[in-house]
Amino acid sequence: MMLVPVWRRSWRDAAFVGAWMAVNPVVFGKPAHERAWSTRAMLGEERWIEERPMDAAMAVNAAATVAGVGAMVAARRRRAVPAAVAAAAQMGLLLAYWELMARYHDTRHGNGAGRGAR
């Protein structure tokens, strides 16, 4: 989604993406429980950002950022295959990062293996 404005060189598309990024946290209310993997990942990320430990998650996040920048550069040059490969790498790294964040939440929340999810 974030590559579309760069690929198309469209300020209008960038405004839509920016608006979605701004309203996204507001659109979705507080979850009913913390059993879902995605909920645990987001809560773990919030805590991780506050504590900022130098751990594997930092490296995975940095690698995802590099892949994202590579995807943006490839999209700017309108190179479809490199943009798609870099975007896929970024998404894979983000999923790995979110798994680390879910684990971070679980270990900081006192129950180690999660809260009944999986």
Rank of each mutant, 00 (worst) to 15 (best):
R79I: 02
W48A: 02
M2E: 15
A96V: 12
A63W: 06
G29A: 04
R115D: 12
M21F: 10
M91G: 13
P82D: 08
R108P: 02
G112T: 08
A71Y: 04
G92F: 09
R47S: 09
E34A: 03
E34C: 00
V23I: 04
D13T: 09
D55V: 03
P5V: 04
H33N: 14
K30L: 15
P82L: 06
Y104I: 13
A19N: 10
E99N: 04
A84K: 09
P5M: 07
G112R: 09
E99I: 00
T107A: 12
Y104A: 08
R8K: 12
P31L: 10
R108G: 14
V73M: 12
A80P: 00
E45K: 08
A89S: 08
W20M: 10
G18V: 10
A22W: 09
A84F: 08
P5G: 01
E34W: 05
A86K: 13
G29H: 08
L43F: 02
V60I: 06
W20G: 10
L100W: 01
A56I: 15
A75F: 10
G18Q: 01
W98E: 05
L94Y: 11
W98Q: 14
A67C: 05
R115K: 12
M21N: 12
G44D: 05
P25C: 06
S38D: 05
M58L: 14
V69W: 01
E46L: 12
H109L: 06
F16G: 04
V69M: 13
V66S: 04
R79E: 13
M21R: 14
A62M: 09
N111V: 15
R47N: 07
R12Y: 15
L3S: 02
R76T: 10
R103P: 04
G116Q: 04
E45G: 03
G110Y: 00
S38K: 02
H109E: 07
A67Q: 01
A64L: 01
M101Q: 00
A88W: 01
E50H: 13
W98N: 13
A56Q: 15
A88M: 05
V4L: 15
H105V: 09
L93E: 07
A57G: 14
G70T: 07
L95H: 14
E99V: 02
L95Q: 14
M101P: 02
A56D: 10
M1K: 01
R108C: 13
